[in-house]
Structures are given as structure tokens and as C-alpha cells.
Amino acid sequence: MSRHGIEKARGALPLTMVTFEERGHGILSTYPYEVSDENADIFPRFEAPVGRLDDPVTVGRYYQDAAARRPANSAGRLSAKTYQSVGGIFPNMSFHTMFPRTIAVWHPIAPGVTEGWRWCVVDANAPKEVKDNARHHFMRYSGPTGLTEQDDMENWSYLTAATKGPVARRFPYNYQAGLRAERADERLPGATVSDMVNTELSLRGFYAAWQRHMDSGE
């Protein structure tokens, strides 16, 4: 697999952090753009079988067809779709958009304990080979056995443990990264946008919404 697609799309379209502070949602993606022949192909390449049932020829043809149809399908609308972008919907849902294309739901079980569910999304009308390819890709990537998220699990559980320490509890957390580098954007009503990738803009939006709910007295 190569990242051919996103490199091409990102060439003209740098990443942007967007938050909707009124709601607490946020996304890291490209700045919304009009799909053209130049940036239509955002799909990864599967050149050789990797998953158990992989058929790279059928899968490749499917995504090439999708790329070819994309400018017509997207005409007149803005897109922020890239090979991979991530975001969160307040209060406990988050998502990856393309590969892996998954929805995560975070269930609060007890103080310090969260149960994560991940839903894997495939195109309903795709051939079985494409669904199998995506499913195997998601399984290899996601969850406690996923090659990538095995390491994420370490971060998630240790940062939970670290917040319980006496020193961690003595000081407020610092979410200043990228402060004052954000701006309103006329194309995205209600949104605050930052061209910095290493900004805590979306976290400020999330926790501001959380605090409003906590303070609402309901």
C-alpha cells in the first residue's frame, strides 16, 4: 500500500484543524476543497495481497473507478476527504475517515475506566473482495490486537494512570498549544480554524463544551 493518494491531495491542500466550539466537535483534515481531476484520487494502493483473502486487482479497480467518478459526484460541493483524517463528535464518538474507516464509541464505565467500541465501515455496494480487503486492513490496524493501536493502548491507559498522581492533580492542565493562531472562516460558519497541525484547538473546543454541560446544572 502506498500513500500516493494523500500526498497528491495534500500537495495543494495542507492539513487544517477545525473545531466547532459551540458543539465541542473537532476534525483534523484538509481545508475544504472542490474536487477536481487533480485531487480526485485519495485512495490507497494495494499492490500485493496482504490480508488473508486479498485480491489487489479487484480492489485496485474498485478504487480507481471511485476516483474517476469523484469529480462528477462531488460537483458543486466542498470536500474535506483525504486518505486519512481524524475527528471527534462530542461527547464520546470519534472517527477515522478512510483507511482505516472506523467509528469509535467511548463508553464511560467507571472513574478511570473507559470501554472502547470500534465500528468498521465498508461501502454497502462494494464487491466482496473490497469489503474483505477493508475488513482485514481495519483488523490489522485497530483495537488491542491491531499493529498500530497496540501502541496507542499503552498511551491511553498510561495517561489515564498518570492523571491520578498527586502532582498531576495539583496543577491545571495546559492546553495552550496553538493559542491565538486560530481564526474564524467564512466558508465554515460556526467553526474555528487553525492552519497549525500541532494545536490543541480541538481539545479547547471539546473541554469548553464539556465545561458548559457540567456547569449547566441539569
Binding site: G51, R52, M139, T145
Partner: peptide, 17 residues
Amino acid sequence: DGALAWFDDNRATLERR
């Protein structure tokens, strides 16, 4: 078949692990 699993590996993906 067709469902998620903790593991569903072949030789190539075991090699990557």
C-alpha cells in the same frame, strides 16, 4: 467469514507482526 475478529492473519500478516 465476513466478520471482525481479534486476529485473522495469514502468513504475510504474521510476518509483519
